[in-house]
Nucleic acid binder design. Sequence first.
DNA 1: TTTTATTTTGTAATGATTACAAATTTGAAA
DNA 2: TTTCAAATTTGTAATCATTACAAAATAAAA
Lengths: 151, 151
Amino acid sequence: MNAVDTAVKLLQAKKIRPSLTRIHILAYLLSHPIHPTVDQIYQALLPQIPTLSKTTVYNTLDLLLENKLVKLVGVEQREKHYDANTKDHGHFFCRICEKIYDFSTPAAEIEAPEIKGFQIEVKNVSYSGVCSDCRHKNKHKEDEYEKFEGN
Amino acid sequence: MNAVDTAVKLLQAKKIRPSLTRIHILAYLLSHPIHPTVDQIYQALLPQIPTLSKTTVYNTLDLLLENKLVKLVGVEQREKHYDANTKDHGHFFCRICEKIYDFSTPAAEIEAPEIKGFQIEVKNVSYSGVCSDCRHKNKHKEDEYEKFEGN
DNA sequence: TTTTATTTTGTAATGATTACAAATTTGAAA
DNA sequence: TTTCAAATTTGTAATCATTACAAAATAAAA
Ligand SMILES: [Mn+2]
Ligand SMILES: [Mn+2]
Ligand SMILES: [Zn+2]
Ligand SMILES: [Zn+2]
């Protein structure tokens, strides 16, 4: 099943009228699991929907959030990032390439607050640092630098 | 040892000149583990340092962050929250009373990205929902909410 | 069709944070 | 002590993602 059909079904299941704009935005998130920002979504859809307004992207994402069809990615960035993968998982933000990676959070997680009688509604596990690719690229640079210094 | 003395020692250990303002800000964070915002710190110290500028609070917190004397609380709020407790621990944000609670994150945590060769520099585990106090205070309303939401 | 509700849009306002340069304070050299 | 450069602090303006809001467009209902 393609992303558009999935989006329509998800919207209908939540009794949200599947307007063209809503389908496009949700389908984009489903087919581009890169945790995009509002502006990334807006820029990506503009060619297909030339009348699209950024306000509509904000409004639609709020609606999808309320209906738990998308989640906010809890990385510390100026712009908010969105995720149509609503399963429990963690995120790793690479400060070099600025990509956001998914990782699984084992079921046997930290339930400390729940034990204390807290009602957990949103969980956020996010790390940041340098991803594998960027570490490798950086190591290469360091090697070159060392060679240069040795001359 | 009081918070001021601790602050001075921490600053000196990092070779940061312990100016009055820096001591005050760090000591405030150490003695008020409520994860305050810039404005909360500013308002709290204004009576003692009438010439204090909010820019200085921003500057000082940036300096303390760089030197790992404080950490950012990874809670999704409009304003950033700061914590002088630099030990690994999680945070719970109550959407009713807006208090931020600490909880311990067991050592055997999710190390998935590290296995993949990622260099983890910052960890953030934060949950949100309704705290124990607020659940009890609003028992009736909460029951209605749970019924309605189907949780 | 006419009316009403929903969705989308454009523009203005918000507000936490940042940029930046001037003012002040500090510490050490002369 | 006086001088002076560096460090620190301050005030103001700019930034910019997000929100507020009302009008416009579109879809559904009557
Ligand atoms: Mn994800
Ligand atoms: Mn804490
Ligand atoms: Zn990277
Ligand atoms: Zn509470």
